[in-house]
């Protein structure tokens, strides 16, 4: 049996946890080799291996989306994890990569708007900010005074709308209070330069950040009516940053 056929059949079957016929499709295997593989797949040792794989994948997913899952009913949590792992998720042993992918999956499957979606976006945003926080050095605000300075929204920052006070949501998660009703949005800024990576934000900050999906000159932003203090606050938090071209010049 060729090494690649053996590994592909075994790997596919452990991942799929389905019958040997499916796992052997398209592989160059003799009848005897298929028979030998089926004997492995039908063994108690293979079932134990598949259960270990399943358990590891479910654990990786559950740890990666701990906050979001905790606000969902137990049955829904289990269903999301089951669906994710059935689709091949949970196999990445790098926490942040696995967590980001699972949170993106969850975001497609919970109602919009909902507390669950808000927490999902918050958890994802914190993950992005945390990834670069150790290397983040608060930039000098004097750079913003340069007439040619171009800035854009940082990919490591986000504005997240919560439809209740965060404290109320956390109390509900801990079982110390009811799930609060959906209210007017409370905007949080999540960025690598903030203590704890998050703070309350206002709508002017959120609007400015959204307008910086495309780079703009600071001068232009001021002409549009933005306040320098707002730009500086986002700049020092790491929510906006100099464009790549700007950084290359410095």
């Amino acid at each position: 049996m060729s090494l690649i056929a053996f590994q592909t059949a075994l790997g596919r079957t452990v991942r799929a946890r389905q019958g040997a016929q499916i796992s052997c499709e398209g592989l160059d295997l003799s009848e005897q080799e298929r028979h030998n593989l089926v004997r492995i797949f039908e063994s108690s040792g293979f079932r134990a291996t598949a259960r270990i794989q399943r358990s590891w994948c479910e654990s990786r997913a559950a740890i990666g989306a701990r906050l979001t899952l905790s606000i969902l009913p137990l049955a829904q949590r289990r269903e999301l994890i089951r669906e994710w792992v059935d689709g091949g998720g949970g196999t990445n042993s790098f926490f942040a990569a696995e967590a980001a992918a699972f949170l993106e999956f969850i975001a497609q499957r919970v109602p919009d708007p909902s507390h669950a979606l808000s927490l999902c976006r918050l958890e994802h945003a914190v993950l992005c900010a945390e990834a670069v926080a150790a290397q983040f050095i608060p930039p000098d605000v004097a750079q913003l005074d340069e007439p040619e300075c171009m800035v854009c929204a940082s990919p490591h920052a986000a504005f997240v709308a919560l439809f209740a006070e965060l404290e109320q949501l956390l109390l509900a998660i801990e079982g110390q209070g009811p799930l609060p009703p959906m209210s007017e949005p409370h905007i949080l800024l999540v960025a690598p330069g903030l203590p704890g990576f998050a703070r309350p934000a206002d709508t002017a900050e959120a609007a400015l950040w959204r307008s910086l999906a495309e780079p703009q000159r600071v001068e232009t932003l001021l002409h549009q009516g933005n306040v320098l203090a707002t730009i500086e606050a986002l700049w020092t938090a790491g929510a906006i940053e100099a464009t790549l071209h700007e950084r290359a010049l410095r």
Partner: peptide, 8 residues
């Protein structure tokens, strides 16, 4: 490349 999720 597909990760199997456990060493084999």
């Amino acid at each position: 490349t597909l990760n199997i999720g456990v060493p084999m």
